[in-house]
């Protein structure tokens, strides 16, 4: 009866129905936020009734890149920084597939930064889930484009002196159709944000504030996973509260929810319409 549960949102959500259980135990460190993000993603997939056979997960290199392999779908683990470019080809060639990119702050914003801004600009129907743990975890804890200032990493022994990217502002400015951010502690809210992204007809960029307890947390004395997640929570405020006076007890660092949405045309449909016109076909 497992098959039944995977169809069209039928039945309760069982994460196991969407995982390659043969691969367990997984590679993630205790306390890593990526597992929560994975669960929220699969929960959203379940609730939307997306058929696993038509689901394509594309990921790059790094801790985020390894997450996709656990999903019981068509999974592609490609070169560092290039999952969005790979996904662009896949989605253009196969518009019938639901294409999700799982990437990280280094994969997406550093080595793959060019692809991100152009994926946003193109507005092809892809959902990009960027798991932001503020560090290059898999290679041992080097500084990333989202590492907060003054943080210690293996390549910033005196503290990071580079400013961090605000990935959501970047994505919005580059033209992404839908932009959102959520923390892992609010898993149902994260699920809802991912659903919004998956339902959106265009490019959706979703930043998930993950946490790297084992490497980044220890190096910076940020405590255990629970403490790191709570710290995110205390940094956060829903987008509905637009000014600092709404919730004066919270700083304004992490705005969450759907942060931007536009009705720009989806690129694939536009291209196919143009092509059909060239062939003399009517829409």
């Amino acid at each position: 009866m497992n098959e039944m549960k995977t169809k069209a949102g039928g039945g309760n959500f069982e994460v196991r129905d969407y995982l390659r259980l043969d691969l367990m135990p997984h590679f993630m460190c205790p306390g890593c936020g990526h597992g929560i993000a994975l669960r929220a993603l699969l929960w959203a997939v379940h609730e939307l009734g997306i058929d696993k056979d038509n689901l394509a997960i594309v990921s790059g290199i790094g801790c985020s890149g390894r997450v996709g392999a656990y999903i019981d779908a068509n999974t592609y683990h490609v070169t560092h920084g290039r999952p969005l470019a790979f996904a662009t080809g896949l989605k253009l060639a196969r518009p019938d597939l639901k294409v999700i990119v799982i990437t990280g702050d280094g994969d997406c914003l550093a080595i793959g930064g060019n692809h991100l801004i152009h994926a946003c600009r193109r507005n092809l129907d892809i959902t990009c889930l960027m798991l932001n743990n503020e560090v290059y975890g898999m290679t041992g804890g080097q500084v990333s484009p989202t590492t907060a200032e003054n943080r210690l990493t293996t390549t910033t022994p005196s503290g990071n002196s580079e400013p961090a990217f605000d990935a959501c502002k970047l994505a919005e400015a580059a033209g992404a159709g839908l932009v959102g951010r959520e923390v892992t502690m609010q898993t149902p809210a994260l699920r809802n944000l991912i659903k919004a992204g998956l339902e959106f007809d265009g490019f959706s960029f979703l930043e998930v504030m993950s946490d790297c307890t084992e490497i980044y947390g220890r190096k910076n004395d940020l405590g255990e996973s629970a403490e790191m997640i709570m710290a995110q929570k205390s940094d956060m405020r829903p987008q509905a509260y637009t000014t600092i006076t709404d919730q004066p007890f919270r700083p304004n660092r992490l705005v969450t929810g759907v942060l931007a949405q536009s009705d720009r045309p989806e690129y694939g449909a536009t291209y196919r319409r143009q092509a059909a016109a060239l062939r003399g076909e009517t829409a």
Binding site: A56, V78, A85, F86, T88, G89, L90, L92, A93, H115
Partner: peptide
């Protein structure tokens, strides 16, 4: 990369 994606499709 896009070519590899399309061919994979």
């Amino acid at each position: 990369a896009a070519v590899l994606g399309a061919s994979s499709g």
